[in-house]
């Protein structure tokens, strides 16, 4: 076999980047599960930190709020982005670029600016107290754009002639949507739902300014971080990392085994030309 320096350099970069990304995560994972938490090599296993974290009632309330925030944001932004994607592909016509520019504009505005401007608008101009509802709405703005991008990459191969066929045979638009479109596009919707849920669950920079006195997991972690890093924070980060990893692993297995194809249908690629 021929020696190829280019190939080796590329693969080495991939490996080094992976190490860079995962080394801190693995490190704090080990730190949270061992008694010698600052330098756990070799680790002396202990679940003391984990059980302290799970027994803390502030973290429990925060977890509940974060879950609620995540579910609400994910539902709203997936529904809105689904509608927007279909609208862009089917109904926008020559105005596609205009609508697309508006819909993805939140991507190009930093999260902290979204948070601050929403705070000014709702807190100062409308005189509303910050609560979970205002945090949900502000997060939806940001997550909507991500959901739109995810769905757009999945749905642009969708064959709209299936909808036309249903209409020709007399189905109403609503019935076409629920019996033809939705069963075919649900994997894209699910992917967007999962990603936006995780993003909203972990968001600090938008939620922080709008939550008022409601604690969520990131805001509690931020508050604790100001007084120095404690092993509980390592444990918290490890738990969230593990859950996210598991969700994405399940998603990957579903895609591999073909239970859910997430919008990619090779046979349709040929048919749609």
């Amino acid at each position: 076999m021929r020696f190829r320096p280019g190939k080796i350099a590329l693969i080495a970069t991939v490996v080094v980047s992976y190490l860079f990304l995962y080394l801190p995560i693995v490190h704090i994972g080990l730190a949270s599960l061992s008694r010698n938490s600052s330098f756990p090599y070799p680790p002396h296993w202990s679940f003391a930190t984990m059980s302290r974290l799970l027994g803390n009632s502030l973290y429990q309330t925060a977890l509940g709020n974060s879950l609620l925030l995540g579910v609400l944001v994910a539902t709203l932004s997936t529904a809105l982005a689904g509608a927007a994607t279909i609208g862009l592909m089917r109904h926008a016509g020559r105005k596609t670029t205009l609508f697309l520019a508006l819909f993805i504009a939140p991507l190009f505005v930093a999260e902290v600016l979204l948070g601050i401007s929403s705070l000014i608008f709702s807190g100062l101009f409308l005189g509303l107290q910050g609560n979970l509802g205002s945090a949900v709405l502000a997060n939806v703005v940001h997550c909507f754009s991500y959901a739109l991008l995810i769905m757009a990459t999945q749905l642009y191969r969708y064959d709209w002639r299936l909808d036309d066929a249903a209409m020709v045979f007399g189905a109403t638009p609503a019935r076409t949507f629920f019996e033809v479109t939705l069963p075919l596009i649900w994997p894209g919707l699910l992917g967007a739902f999962i990603v936006t849920f995780i993003m909203a669950f972990n968001n600090l920079e938008i939620s922080f300014y709008l939550l008022g006195a409601t604690p969520t997991l990131p805001s509690v972690a931020w508050g604790a971080l100001r007084y120095g890093v404690k092993p509980e924070l390592y444990a918290l980060a490890t738990c969230v990392n593990l859950v996210v990893l598991c969700v994405l692993a399940v998603m990957f297995v579903l895609m591999r085994t073909g239970l859910a194809t997430f919008g990619h249908r090779p046979e349709r690629e040929r048919a749609a030309v």
Partner: peptide, 22 residues
């Protein structure tokens, strides 16, 4: 590629905590 997305999705605070660990 998904492996690269996992850390991105876990939020900035938790990743700053991980960075403190590094």
């Amino acid at each position: 590629t998904l492996g690269f997305a996992v850390p991105f999705l876990t939020g900035e605070v938790l990743r700053v905590i991980a960075l403190q660990g590094l």
